[in-house]
Nucleic acid binder design. Structure first.
Lengths: 215, 215
DNA sequence: GGTATCTTGGAACCCTCGGTTCAAGATGGC
DNA sequence: GCCATCTTGAACCGAGGGTTCCAAGATACC
């Protein structure tokens, strides 16, 4: 009875992702989407809804298909996993097809898109996912003895006295280090959009990782 | 003979700054500018030109009046200057009148504004200015012995203020550390726009500074 | 093949965009 | 008061915004 779609929605959505990723939502018109996807206005609205829903769908596809967190999350080498992640990040941002595009998530932070609560939820969720991946990698690194000798004798009381003696003294430090690295990733995404030099960015992230390593 | 301007261009431009800063360029129309400034279209175009020139003028006024780099540049206390700078940054981004607005420079990175070479030049110039200010503060910190013992094993935990004109062994390290902090500032600006927690950001920048201090 | 149901194509919708123009009003030196 | 100069408000322009509607085309079950 029913007719079936004459195009691949996922392929079309991928074209939309690349459009919004590179040029931003506000400066991209529906006509641009029509031109890029090749499909018609009617099909567009029938499939995805209006522009807001289209952007949301594109953003979700981006975090699903284009965010390269999986290698980091599944890599249990510790510090080398983090280094490789950041080197891959810098490369992806500064060279190749998507050079100068930045990160669609980071870009969404700065625009008016995050007025949408659903968009903001995606942003927070992705940031937490990145933080957790980095934290796990740092924990693995400490387990492997890749982090310099410093975990002993730290933790000068502080406010959180709830920790029993069994917990690791460096847990809070690792969490903070993961936060620093997560923020650093955002900044790499940002600066790469202004054409920052790849070597410069690479050296900077290397320095940050080194500071965390020999602490 | 000629009539004189019936408004204050600087005051009007300041209103434009706040408009573009908060909502972005792409999503702000000329009509919004007219409403915010109180003056009409003709005066607007006669005084500033089109939207691009208006944005450029607003951006330049932002870096001139709203970027809080002067205190850091003139503060010769070393590490405390850096700490105060970042604490002030987090406060300004998360509380008060401009909470959640981020930084107009950081925002410009993510948008389509930086297609304009003149805009990109402002971005690079401001980034370099931040980097230099942080680097100078770090040099001062080392001169004051506020940085941990690591510089090629010269002195062990000494408040050594020597190290005269000779080539500094830790210059490259300081430069990299300044780059890390500069990127961190960008990331704070970015995440604050998504409503990141002030304490979280504060703890993170404190951790980064601490990592640099005891290196 | 018939037919119900969905997709598709294209046009039109209404609104706002950035930008320009023009006549009337306001101003201050002569 | 005169008059050149500037300001002001409003109308106007073409273009493009996002969205909707309806006929025409395609499909799969009966």
């Amino acid at each position: 009875m029913p007719d079936v779609k004459h195009f691949d929605p996922e392929a079309a959505l991928d074209a939309v992702v690349r459009l919004f990723w590179r040029r931003g939502v506000a400066t991209t018109g529906i006509q641009d989407v029509v031109d890029a996807t090749g499909l018609n206005r009617s099909s567009l609205y029938a499939t995805f809804g209006g522009k807001r829903e289209l952007y949301r769908a594109a953003l979700e596809r981006y975090v699903r298909e284009r965010s390269n967190l999986a290698p980091l999350e599944q890599d249990d080498r510790g510090l080398p996993a983090i280094t490789d992640f950041f080197h891959g990040l810098v490369d992806a941002r500064c060279t190749g097809e998507h050079a100068g595009w930045g990160c669609m998530i980071s870009n969404a932070h700065a625009g008016a898109e995050n007025d949408d609560p659903q968009v903001r939820a995606v942003l927070d969720r992705q940031h937490e996912r990145l933080h957790n991946a980095l934290l796990n990698a740092l924990r693995t690194a400490r387990r492997h003895g890749q982090l310099g000798p410093d975990t002993a004798g730290t933790d000068t009381a502080g406010s959180n006295t709830a920790d029993p003696g069994a917990t690791d003294p460096g847990t809070a430090d690792l969490d903070a280090a993961a936060s620093v690295l997560a923020l650093l990733a955002h900044a790499v995404n940002l600066r790469s959009r202004a054409g920052a030099d790849a070597r410069q960015l690479r050296d900077t992230v290397d320095a940050a990782i080194a500071m965390i390593a020999r602490r």
